[in-house]
């Protein structure tokens, strides 16, 4: 792996350089929330954050997006697909867990037979510059689900904060072409040693929080366990844990109409909402919290393993922190593991 180095104060120049060429999205502070947003200059960026409330998935998969419009209602022959003339996107300063989540979203939206053109139009030329976590939170459990505070999966470049400089780990060819183009120095031996220390310290500060060995088998065999009922009785069936999850991707497709125009829109949806699976006949295969929350956990830790060969949780801890009733997925998994 190539490693480059850049002084922190030079980052400004680099970022402004990138803004010339890319639509740059970076963590910014709005009121007291950190969110990922399009930036106009380096001044907007705030790298002092543990993680954003909303994950960056909306940059690829917005909460609502128009699939197409049609001229007059009922006129299927007048369909128009919106074309984006945007420059390629660059995500700057996202966390490694969120970068990993893109690989999962790719498996869903870039499936061979049904490629999702909307997702891919943003994804294809996208550049990801992640920043490793020197201070993981107590709620972070990336290391339990195959990631880590300096995991490079899903990133083109990975920044490591070593004090006055950032080491730039060059992960992909795309990333390599970018660093060659902007021209940054190679990292020296002593800086690399420093980087290793920083990484090691962060990794050591994290202890395993869920037992993943045999978890899938455990979950599969515990499907009918009544414990699901008591574990989930307090759930409010809100959208927080799914909307804020970087690897949740369920959606709905709806039509909206203005005076003369119809629009087909894709919006985020949630397996936690009772209406999600309510059939027209009135029957609902997931009528209560128990089935719905079980679905969320099973989907992430069993079904995705069957379908995509990996769990669809990156351990970011958002659902843990933001659930209004403290329904903690780590506790759910641990309880099931111990059955």
């Amino acid at each position: 792996m190539k490693t480059k180095i850049i002084r922190k104060q030079d980052m400004t120049g680099l970022l402004n350089n990138l803004i010339q060429e890319y639509e740059v999205f970076a963590p910014v502070k709005r009121d007291d929330l950190v969110i990922f947003d399009r930036i106009g200059s380096d001044k907007d960026v705030s790298l002092e954050y543990t993680n954003s409330i909303k994950p960056p998935k909306e940059i690829l998969f917005p909460q609502s997006e128009t699939l197409f419009t049609c001229g007059s209602i009922g006129d299927a022959a007048s369909i128009e697909v919106p074309v984006s003339e945007e420059r390629p996107r660059l995500l700057f300063g996202i966390r490694p867990c969120d970068a990993r989540s893109f690989l999962l979203l790719d498996k869903v939206f870039n499936e061979e037979n049904h490629r999702d053109v909307y997702y891919l139009s943003r994804r294809n030329d996208m550049m990801v510059i992640a920043i490793g976590c020197i201070k993981p939170r107590a709620t972070c459990f990336c290391t339990s689900v195959g990631g880590g505070p300096f995991s490079s999966q899903g990133s083109d470049l990975l920044l490591v904060d070593i004090g006055d400089d950032y080491i730039i780990q060059v992960i992909t060819d795309k990333g390599s072409r970018l660093v060659e183009k902007v021209g940054v120095a190679d990292a020296g031996e002593n800086k690399l040693a420093l980087m290793k220390m920083v990484i090691q310290e962060a990794e050591l500060s994290m202890s395993p929080q869920i037992k993943t060995d045999g978890l899938k088998e455990k979950l599969d065999s515990a499907f009918d366990d009544p414990i699901w009922g008591s574990l989930t009785e307090k759930c409010l069936s809100c959208g927080i844990c799914t909307y804020l999850c970087p690897s949740c991707y369920c959606f709905d497709i709806i039509d909206e109409v203005t005076d003369s125009k119809g629009e087909r829109i894709r919006i985020w949806d949630s397996c936690q909402f009772p209406l999600f699976t309510l059939q027209a006949s009135g029957s609902n295969p997931r009528p209560t919290n128990k089935e719905r929350h079980r679905q969320r956990v099973m989907h992430k830790f069993s079904y995705c393993v069957d379908n995509y060969g990996q769990v669809s949780c990156v351990g970011c801890g958002r659902c843990v922190i933001e659930c209004p009733v403290n329904l903690d997925i780590r506790q759910v998994l641990t309880t099931i593991s111990n059955r």
Binding site: R30, D31, L33, K54, C238, G239, Y243, L275, P324
Partner: peptide, 24 residues
């Protein structure tokens, strides 16, 4: 404008108990 329509506010509210909420 910050709202993401997760409906946690509605679902946490003890008096929002409509079987079908008008938004649904």
């Amino acid at each position: 404008s910050k709202c993401i329509r997760c409906y946690a506010c509605r679902n946490a509210c003890p008096l929002c108990y409509c079987r079908e909420c008008f938004v649904d």
